[in-house]
Design a protein around this nucleic acid. Structure first.
Length: 210
DNA sequence: AAGGCGCACAACCGCGGGGAC
DNA sequence: GGTCCCCGCGGTTGTGCGCCT
């Protein structure tokens, strides 16, 4: 794309912010690629979109994270892994980028978490099924879900998001798979009831990351 | 004073999904 | 069904600034 080379990169100036804000005021949100056509702004659409969503949007909260927000991030990250958009969803005024940056610069250090590639702490359903404690209790203990009600569903064929593999095809031991249902699904904009699958050896199982 | 360094935050990039045509 | 456009996501890189020597 020849035209793309002309787009400016780097930090935004006050004047650019003003132009973008005025564009949004007149044309509304969306069709960001039209911004450089309709204005004198020499920024690509994606850059405009990001600047608006992460900074200029009036609903975006600036400033440090509160203890409550920090606690929520920690809990949700433990639960969801690096799914920043999901983590940011129940936090009004916070964007995925903010949450991601805050995690990478503050919380990971604070929690003593090293950056590892693909290291995943998995919960085998044998921990649940094979343990002496009741299945639901085991899940509750692992998730520490002050804000969630979870229950373990009977293991059955699992279709992992966007994948047609059955649970049986993904591993050798049937006991490796399980499903957690979020009974209290207020925090996530998921089809109710929300389902999270976990399994061994599948990319989608990064629910608990260390 | 200055330059090296690390931290915090902003911004970019690659990729993929969904919808319109 | 194929292509294009738009958008969202998550990882990575860039930038500014304060602190230390």
């Amino acid at each position: 794309m020849e035209e793309e080379k002309e787009y400016k990169k780097g930090l935004w100036t006050e004047e650019e912010d003003r132009i973008l804000s005025e564009y949004v005021r007149v044309h509304g949100i969306g069709h960001w690629n039209r911004v450089p056509k309709f204005t004198s702004l020499r920024r690509c659409g994606r850059s405009c979109r990001m600047r608006w969503l992460n900074y200029l949007c009036p609903s975006v909260k600036h400033g440090g994270f509160s203890e409550e927000e920090e606690d929520l991030i920690i809990r949700l990250h433990k639960l969801l892994g690096n799914r920043w958009s999901l983590i940011a969803r129940p936090m009004p005024g916070r964007t995925d980028n903010q949450v991601k940056n805050y995690w990478n610069t503050h919380l990971r250090k604070k929690l003593g978490i090293k950056k590892t590639k693909g290291e995943v702490v998995r919960m085998r359903s044998s921990e649940v099924v094979g343990s002496s404690q009741p299945a639901e209790e085991a899940v509750q203990k692992r998730l520490q879900p002050d804000k969630f009600d979870v229950e373990l569903l009977p293991r059955s064929e699992v279709t992992v998001a966007g994948d047609t593999q059955s649970a049986g095809e993904m591993g050798n031991e049937e006991s490796q798979f399980g499903i957690i249902e979020f009974v209290n699904n207020d925090l996530f904009d998921m089809p109710s009831p929300g389902l999270l699958e976990f399994s061994d050896g599948h990319p989608f199982d990064a629910i608990w990351q260390s």
